[in-house]
């Protein structure tokens, strides 16, 4: 067993893990942050996307021990402390960007990573960025619309 310490959603956490413990498993089973979903377990579907030191990664394809000392943000860390949803979360709701909701945590985490990198993405850029996030029910159109709407809302208004 290895001791790991990291910051998750702004809180210092630590735990004892096996070498093979995946970051997704540590988040879900040790920290009880079950918003990070494990869909395929083969790095394809993206339901487990979290941010590690600000970058989107698949938490099912990284060991917990590799996140030693890292700043991790999960879907639970996206809304404000009082529960106010982020612009991306609100836009998913408004634009019907989810049906069953299983892929949604990963979609929202990827969307936030995209908008941090590129605040004004084209539709094609949004679709390209979601290459590693699979949704089996909405058919992507509304997810793309939601992200475009959130981008517009999050962009600072140009000074007149």
């Amino acid at each position: 067993m290895t001791k790991v310490s990291m910051t998750v959603n702004g809180k210092a956490v630590s735990g004892e893990v096996e070498g093979r413990t995946l970051l997704a498993t540590f988040l879900r089973e040790d920290l009880h942050l079950t918003g990070t979903h494990i869909g395929c377990d083969t790095s394809q579907c993206g339901a487990c996307v979290v941010h590690v030191d600000g970058q989107a990664v698949k938490a099912c394809t990284m060991f917990a021990a590799e996140a030693e000392g890292a700043e991790v943000t999960t879907i639970e860390g996206i809304a404000a402390a009082d529960g106010t949803m982020s612009p991306v979360q609100k836009a998913f709701q408004e634009h019907h960007g989810l049906q069953c909701g299983f892929c949604t945590p990963g979609m929202v985490m990827s969307a936030h990573a995209l908008l941090a990198e590129n605040p004004d993405p084209s539709e094609a850029e949004i679709r390209e960025y979601l290459q590693g996030n699979i949704c089996r029910c909405t058919g992507y159109h509304n997810i793309v619309k939601a992200i475009a709407a959130a981008a517009a809302e999050m962009r600072p208004v140009a000074a007149e």
């Binding site: 790095s43 970058q55 990664v57 990827s110 590693g132």
Partner: peptide, 9 residues
Amino acid sequence: IGDPAVRNR
């Protein structure tokens, strides 16, 4: 290569 999350690792 791969997708954005894969490229970050």
